[in-house]
């Protein structure tokens, strides 16, 4: 297998991790040998995993210390249960002590694990509070989104709490998945089998055009690595300042303007048009490089 060309989308969590950080630098906390599995899945007779679907540990990236979590989308949709969520919370607690250059969350999750829904929901709110705490302490958290499950449900909220969101075109980011909306509101509201539509509503190119993703990269592990390394360097020279009243008033105004400007929008084409792409209908065909060149200011 040629490691340089390996698709981030198709890779497992562990492959993404090892390709992302400096070779041989990763050490795992609470590794599979410790068999910290979910008793709730066992009770329901569902398959378990020795890492409960998330790998957490310490590594270096371009020489900088990072703490890192990678969700495994192939295990129950990367869903967050009690153990899975607690591993991420523990990692964020650790960041408060170790003060790494950044915390990296390789998000690949549909959100709460329904088999242990209450534990998952509480865990996600704990992760939200922990991300906010870590960033208030000046440590940036980056979300990397390019897996097959995207970043949905509570993990979609967590992703948008992060100082930086790196996405590939294949990555998807939202709150309610298209299947959920179709089931509740009907196929005329959202046809979840229309893949092109789904990507125009949730995909990386849409999120980048709105500014919800701060980088759009190719679907390659080295491309994610390069973006993360570059961001770490940037935060070394321009440290994260905790959000204060003025920054949040600005964000409030920005989101209010978005709601007003796109009050009746139902398709990403309308956003791309507003982001001054010469021909919005051609945006899905653009390479990442072409897209980034043509994108002016996010809409």
């Amino acid at each position: 297998m040629n490691g340089r060309r390996i698709s981030y989308f198709e890779a497992s969590a562990r492959m993404r991790l090892s390709g992302l950080v400096d070779a041989g630098s990763f050490s795992e906390f609470c590794p599979p040998e410790m068999r910290q599995t979910s008793p709730h899945l066992a009770q329901l007779g569902a398959p378990q995993a020795f890492d409960d679907g998330v790998v957490v540990g310490r590594a270096s990236l371009a020489g900088h210390a990072v703490l890192i979590a990678a969700q495994e989308g192939r295990f129950i949709g990367g869903s967050v249960g009690e153990v899975h969520g607690a591993k991420i919370c523990g990692l964020l607690d650790k960041a408060m002590v170790e003060r790494p250059a950044a915390v990296l969350l390789l998000v690949d999750s549909g959100g709460v694990r329904l088999h242990e829904a209450n534990a998952g929901l509480i865990a996600i709110s704990e992760i939200m509070r922990a991300v906010l705490q870590v960033q208030a302490a000046g440590i940036p958290v980056f979300a990397l989104v390019g897996g097959s499950c995207g970043a949905f449900g509570g993990m979609g909220i967590v992703t948008r709490l992060c100082a930086e969101v790196v996405m590939s075109e294949q990555g998807r980011l939202g709150l309610s998945g298209p299947e959920v909306i179709e089931t509740v509101k009907g196929v005329e509201e959202f046809d979840s089998r229309d893949r092109a539509l789904v990507w125009r509503i949730t995909g990386g190119k849409l999120r980048r055009a709105l500014g919800d993703a701060t980088r759009l990269v190719d679907d390659l592990i080295p491309a994610f690595r390069a973006a993360a390394a570059d961001l770490i360097e940037r935060y070394q020279t321009h440290p994260l300042t905790p959000a204060h009243l003025d920054t949040l008033l600005d964000e409030q105004a920005r989101l209010a303007a978005r709601s007003e400007r796109f009050a009746s929008a139902r398709d990403g084409l309308e956003i791309w048009q507003a982001a001054a792409f010469a021909d919005a209908s051609q945006v899905p065909e653009l390479t990442v490089e072409e897209f980034n060149l043509q994108l002016g200011e996010p809409a």
Binding site: R160, L173, G174, L175, E189, L210, D212, D267
Partner: peptide, 14 residues
């Protein structure tokens, strides 16, 4: 679909 398009998750994060 409209709320998802605009990124409701980002509004909640705010």
């Amino acid at each position: 679909r409209h709320d998802e398009l605009l990124g409701l998750n980002g509004y909640f994060a705010h």
